[in-house]
């Protein structure tokens, strides 16, 4: 029993110690992505304060193509925002974090992948759309011509008996 009690107390102590140390090292903001896989090259990033009051008026979002942020793709200075919409990104893995005015990281690192849809499938749908649109144009023109020829309407718009 004493052994079990000691084990239980140790576990509880370790749990609270871990929680406390997490609280000390946790970032002021939690950064999230709207999706982990962006198939259209656009996505949203949002952040919320984790605890306590944080100065969120002037922060910047740093986006890199490597997790160590040695290859920074872009930095966005943001004022009084809690979300941002990114677009026009090429295929690849991206990593994002928030920095304060002293360029100190103030958020976790959020990652996402951009993988555009298959170009062949896109062209297939494009061709389908083009064919359907050409059909619509052709049919509209021919139906209009035929309606005029069949004499349902004369030039003044009056109905005329085809018989």
């Amino acid at each position: 029993m004493p052994l079990r009690a000691t084990w239980l107390l140790t576990s509880v102590a370790l749990f609270f110690l871990a929680e406390a140390s997490w609280g000390l090292t946790a970032y002021p903001f939690e950064l999230q992505t709207s999706t982990e896989l962006a198939t259209e090259g656009f996505l949203g990033l949002s952040w919320q304060p984790t605890s306590g009051a944080a100065d969120d008026r002037h922060i910047s979002l740093q986006v890199a193509t490597t997790p160590d942020f040695k290859s920074v793709f872009a930095s966005y200075n943001l004022v009084q925002q809690q979300q941002v919409s990114l677009s026009g990104l090429a295929d690849g893995d991206y990593f994002a974090r928030l920095l304060d005015h002293a360029q100190t990281p103030v958020s976790n690192i959020a990652s996402f992948r951009v993988q555009h849809r298959d170009l062949g499938a896109a062209w297939l749908l494009f061709a389908l759309g083009a064919a359907l649109f050409s059909l619509l144009l052709g049919i509209l023109v021919s139906l209009q011509k035929r309606a005029r020829q069949n004499g349902y309407l004369n030039n003044n718009g009056k109905l005329r008996d085809p018989n």
């Binding site: 090259g41 872009a74 677009s87 090429a90 170009l119 649109f133």
Partner: peptide, 24 residues
């Protein structure tokens, strides 16, 4: 071209799909 390179790319798959969809 630096920050949003795909926006100038005429071979942007989703945008190619979007064109005739928006027309219809």
């Amino acid at each position: 071209s630096v920050q949003q390179p795909q926006l100038l790319n005429l071979l942007f798959p989703a945008a190619i799909m979007f064109l005739f969809n928006n027309i219809f």
